[in-house]
Design a protein around this nucleic acid. Structure first.
Length: 256
DNA sequence: ATGCCGGGTCCTACCCGA
């Protein structure tokens, strides 16, 4: 079973990329982030045409998540439980499929909006940990996948690619990420590649791709029952060389 | 060297990303 995640940086700009990639990679499930369109504008029919059912949680201009699946699934939540009711940012989609709970996230970046923006990121991470805790307590096989906007350690970004005060690497951000991990979740990419630099994002600017100045910020976290089935978890770097690519590449996690 | 590219939008200068 292949579960994939991809921040596509606008589905309208990358619809053809996703269609081609699905055909060539054949994942069972693909979570998308930064679709940057309203829910009704998501091009579901394109994906129906190649055998994928679709569900989107969108908003105008920013954010937006979606899931594509070859097998039927049930939508459980279209927003992160625990957030204020007036929070309309489209960043969370939780489904049940193949007897697993699968969560796709676009975690707040935390660099814009000053201290309030960073506080929002930390509050969002706290709610996510609370949700994960509840699902794990109920003994649900669980995967949380998506764009976490967190470099968990100094091995997870190229030297010089970020300042020490960036919201992706700040100690408070990393502490919240560890809080998630310590619930008993396995960071699948790091488990499959224990040593060295491995990236999922390269900025459009300053030749970051050509100079390999990347970040590892797209993650898949697995509960123990799924971690025991882990076969591989790998970014598909070839996508970054496509014409008009997203700045993120797809990450594919394979379970036996 | 946080705005170098690239997406978005009340259309065009400005917000956001990581």
């Amino acid at each position: 079973m292949k579960i994939a995640t991809w921040n596509v940086n606008s589905i309208r700009q990358r619809e053809g990329h996703v269609q081609r990639w699905l055909t060539q990679c054949q994942p069972d499930i693909l979570f998308l982030q930064e679709i940057k369109c309203e829910t009704h504008a998501f091009p579901a029919l394109t994906f129906h045409g190649i055998g994928y059912m679709a569900e989107a949680v969108g908003q105008k201009s920013y954010n937006g998540v979606a899931v594509l699946s070859r097998a039927p699934f049930t939508v459980v939540h279209r927003a992160l439980p625990g957030l204020p009711a007036d929070d309309t940012q489209a960043r969370y989609l939780e489904i049940e499929a193949a007897d697993m709970t699968l969560i796709g996230i676009y975690l707040p970046n935390g660099n814009s909006g000053g201290s309030a923006g960073f506080a929002y990121k930390l509050a969002w991470m706290e709610c996510l940990a609370e949700r994960a805790r509840a699902l794990l307590a109920a003994d649900r096989p669980l995967a949380i996948t998506g764009d976490f906007n967190v470099c968990p350690t100094d091995d997870d970004f190229a030297p010089g690619a970020l300042s020490a005060t960036d919201a992706l690497v700040r100690p408070e951000t990393r502490a919240k990420f560890r809080q998630l991990i310590w619930l008993g979740l396995t960071d699948a990419i790091r488990a499959a590649h224990p040593h060295g630099h491995i990236y999922t994002f390269w900025d459009y600017q300053a030749g970051a791709w050509q100079r390999d100045l990347g970040l590892r910020i797209d993650h898949t976290l697995l509960s123990s029952a799924l971690a025991e089935r882990l076969v591989s978890a790998t970014p598909d770097k070839a996508e970054r060389d496509q014409p008009q690519p997203s700045d993120h590449v797809p990450v594919v996690t394979e379970l036996s």
